[in-house]
Design a protein around this nucleic acid. Structure first.
Length: 466
RNA sequence: GGUCCGGUGGCAGAGUGGCUAUGCAGGGGACUGCAAAUCCCCGUACGUCGGUUCAAUUCCGGCCCGGACCUCCA
């Protein structure tokens, strides 16, 4: 079964056919670095991380580019408000972003270009657009001429007239057409700016992605991803810029957009103030649980964030890690050692169908059940390997099960491992003396501390944090 | 107004023209000194009204309800 992706350009699921099967190229819109990322910002990162992992399995070479927008009026505003220098804000926030995404198990992209390091490419692109009659300079600004592009609006399925009719902002007087948008704008001396043929200024929002994707992936590439809200205007304008500058029929062949994360059915957003930063959530749950939560819904569907949902994600991971936690059975003498585990095909198939992660997760659970039922030692070990491999495709189940169950949790017990082991030894002594009241008292005592004991058939007592 | 998504069991969330995932929660049983974990069994859900069909939750149409986008936004 080939990879199928839902393409926003055609509004249907299509078979993915790379331009160059030897080298797949993917671009995802990254963050504007002026504040910590919230869980909604993390959703595309995790979703497209699964895509990246899948593509890497399918093709010999994949280049994944995710930009860092480090020049933007929101950054300027943040600096003015706090007094913190712009460089400090952007470098600090970029670092935090990278740490947070790593904590969610997202692989770093192959290239993470910064807008400020691509000003020359942006200026070049703007010059090309002017040359070809798709842009014009006016009062220190350079604007893209929307009427110059016949196919403008194809991605968002908006036509120019509707846009003008529905516009929520006033039309700047220097625009020739109300739908025209800014490629370059002048900077006053107190804010960041770069010399350009149109005077000292800074880029508009959309041009940077056109410049960076061009430089790192070429004029036309395979996949472009981002949040649903970027379809218009951001991606529409990127397409207009790139296609018009290069004279190409498409910018990216497949456009993928993730749905929103909501909180009590309201979109999680900074302006509504109902957001949870990845950072604060990492203080109450493991990154892997947050990742599982994000993958528990299909990437295009809305996903409602609740503490209960997060707790269920953690419980589901407990269930998947449980069979991985039990020691491998002894292989019968003379038995062939289990072969290198294969990737579970049904998990791959689920992902090939437009990244159906909920279905893929259910297949992981089926695999866990198989392991729990398995009585054959060789089969048991082989299935465990498969579960790990399948989890790996989703960026899950890669840590040591002991670490998963025993890593100190924020707000958890203050008891150290040595103290826990000590209490377990005391309890086992009581059990041996058939003093079950004392044994149960210790069990209860540990339970109050969030420690669960499991007496194994082997006679060992294992503990884990609830 | 325009464009585009959805409405599935107590909750979350897949999927399918007939065999009704998966997890959590709940009930019963096995196992256990007690537990935990695990295993077995259980509750027969698909907004609404029509249509097509031998058969529709699944296809088509109307309606109702909810959501997103229409130059801040993942």
């Amino acid at each position: 079964m080939p990879l199928q992706v839902y393409n926003t350009l055609t509004r249907r699921k299509e078979t993915f056919e790379p331009i160059d099967p030897g080298h797949v190229r993917l671009y995802v819109c990254g963050p504007t670095v002026y504040d910590f990322a919230h869980l909604g910002n993390a959703r595309p990162v995790v979703a497209f991380d699964v895509l990246y992992r899948l593509l890497k399995r399918l093709y010999p070479r994949v280049t994944y580019v995710r930009n860092i927008t480090d020049v933007d009026d929101k950054i300027i505003d943040a600096s003015k408000a706090s007094g913190e220098p712009i460089d400090s804000i952007t470098s600090r926030t970029t670092r935090a972003y990278q740490q947070d995404m790593a904590a969610l198990g997202a692989l770093p992209p192959d290239v993470e270009p910064r807008a400020t390091e691509h000003i020359a490419e942006m200026i070049r692109l703007i010059e090309m657009l002017i040359q070809r009659g798709h842009a014009y300079a006016a009062e220190g600004h350079v604007l893209f001429s929307v009427p110059s592009m016949a196919e403008y609006g194809r991605l968002s399925r908006h036509n120019r007239e509707e846009l003008i009719a529905g516009a929520r902002i006033d039309v700047a007087p220097y625009k020739k057409d109300p739908a025209d948008f800014v490629l370059w704008k002048p900077s006053t001396p107190d804010i960041p700016g770069w010399p350009s043929p149109w005077g000292r200024g800074r880029p508009g929002w959309h041009i940077e992605c056109s410049a960076m994707s061009w430089k790192h992936l070429g004029e036309t590439f395979d996949l472009h991803g981002g949040g649903l809200d970027l379809i218009f205007p951001h991606h529409e304008n990127e397409i207009a810029q790139s296609r018009s500058a290069h004279g190409t029929p498409v910018m990216a062949r497949y456009w993928m957009h993730n749905g929103f994360l909501s909180v009590n059915s309201d979109k999680m957003s900074k302006s509504l103030g109902n957001f949870f930063t990845v950072r604060e959530l990492l203080a109450e749950a493991p990154g892997e649980a947050l990742r599982y939560f994000l993958l528990s819904g299909h990437y295009r569907a809305p996903l409602d964030f609740t503490r209960q949902g997060l707790a269920e994600a953690k419980a589901a991971l407990d269930r998947l890690y449980t069979p991985l936690w039990t020691p491998d059975p002894f292989l019968p003498a003379g038995a062939a050692p289990p072969a290198e585990a294969d990737i579970p095909a049904d998990v791959v198939d689920a992902l090939l169908d437009d990244l159906n992660t909920p279905l893929a997760l259910s297949r992981l659970h089926a695999l866990a059940s198989d392991i729990n039922r398995s009585r054959d030692p060789v089969e048991h070990v082989r299935l465990k390997g498969r579960l790990r491999k399948g989890g790996g495709l989703l960026g899950l189940l890669q840590q040591n099960a002991d670490a998963w169950f025993r890593a100190p949790s924020p707000g958890g017990t203050k008891l150290g491992e040595a103290e826990i082991e000590q209490k377990i030894a005391a309890r086992n002594a009581a059990r041996k003396a058939r003093n079950f009241a004392e044994a149960d008292r210790i069990r209860q005592e540990l339970f109050q501390e969030g420690i669960v004991l499991e007496d194994r058939p082997s006679g060992n007592t294992e503990w884990r944090r609830a």
